[in-house]
Amino acid sequence: MIRTTLAASLLLTVSAGALSAQDVYETEQANFRVETVAEDLNMPWSIGFLPDGAMIVTERDGGSQGLRIIDADGHLRAEPVTGMPEDVVVNRQGGLFDAIPHPDFVENRLVYISYAQGTREAHRTALIRARLSDDLTALEDAEELFAVNYDIATNRHHGGKILFDRDGYLWLSLGDGGNHYDEAQNPENHIGTLIRLNDDGSVPSDNPFADGDGGAPEVWSYGHRNIQGLVQHPETGTIWSHEHGPRGGDEVNIHRESGLNYGWPEITYGIEYDGSIITEDREREGMEQPIWYWTPSIANSGAAFYTGDAFPHWQNDLFVGALAGMHVARLETDGDRVIGQERLLEDLEERIRDVRTGPDGYIYITTDSDEGRVLRLVPAE
């Protein structure tokens, strides 16, 4: 049975308005403090860690100037990285999305970037890769690896999350384009799908539609509304994703097999924002069920499994940012099951856009505003 009840809320020792290194947050399994790493960022959308501890941060509304570097010492460089594409479309939910280093970054210096590409009247989610210069100031030899084969004029539901799995495959999440949600049931286009590529953008031979028969070769699964979290379970190796529902029905899904249909908009646990019914069906033969869902919606965003040593009781828990919910959800897992939930940082009263486990074992988050911050959770001594 899917559990939607909430565990006890986070308790604070002092008010969040006076956040400092002395404020201790007490939770079910760990106590921590919140430290500010960087601030005054323009809608920071994602964090990617380089091997030396430096961070690549994307600013969603930064356009071609939105790729930023935070040095290993925590210093935010004033100048953005140059060499970004000039065709980044900034329009509400559209803009610059993920920036992730290649697993062999030390040898090849490759960075993979997703963004809304084109014009406001015709745009799509695209994926490029480029070499990041030794001094971290410029992208070089940029090349497009993938672009959605269906243009939209709406300003929402782009997906954009990138994942390298432990086998070296490259995953990219895509949304339904807002007004185009019926296309999520058509695997012959990329709308509302999860795609899987080799690191050079070519199609793996074992993709479900690799030969183009019945679906686009890049598609791994379909029937998704807007995947905003994409991670691999550190123990089971299963790919997990979570996506925005409409009004209710945000979902966590797992991807054990290829070619599966996750149901949107034929089945959903939500309704339209105006209260009208999308479908009466919550399940249907041949369509996958989520392993967890939120009703009401929390507007789930970036996510990470915790794999560090700083918080041993949180090992293998999934941490999910919430935009409308303004918190971080800690989902306790047992293998490929969610067995409980705890809400963290509710009293911070900020929209949380991304969550990552840092190489130092701390948890890093970004806040979603035009004066956004990068924060980290560190153990309270």
Rank of each mutant, 00 (worst) to 15 (best):
H242N: 11
S202L: 04
Y150K: 15
A216Y: 01
D176M: 12
G214I: 03
L172P: 07
H255C: 06
L230D: 04
D167L: 13
H224R: 10
G245P: 00
D211K: 12
L174S: 09
G249D: 08
W240Q: 03
G212W: 07
S202E: 03
P234H: 05
L172A: 03
D211M: 07
Y273G: 15
R156I: 11
Y273M: 09
N207R: 03
I162G: 02
E257L: 08
H233A: 08
V219L: 14
I162R: 03
N226C: 03
H180M: 12
Y181T: 13
Q185C: 10
H158I: 06
G159V: 08
I195E: 14
L174Y: 08
H158W: 15
R196A: 02
G175W: 13
I254Q: 02
L163T: 04
G270N: 00
H224N: 05
T236L: 00
P234F: 04
I271F: 05
G275P: 07
D274W: 07
F209R: 04
L170S: 11
G249T: 14
H242Y: 10
G175V: 13
D250P: 05
G259P: 12
D250Q: 05
L163C: 09
H224I: 06
E183N: 06
L174A: 07
D274H: 11
I227Y: 10
S276T: 15
E243K: 06
A184Y: 01
W220C: 09
A184T: 00
I191K: 02
D151T: 01
Q185N: 13
E257D: 15
A210R: 05
P208D: 03
H180A: 09
D213H: 09
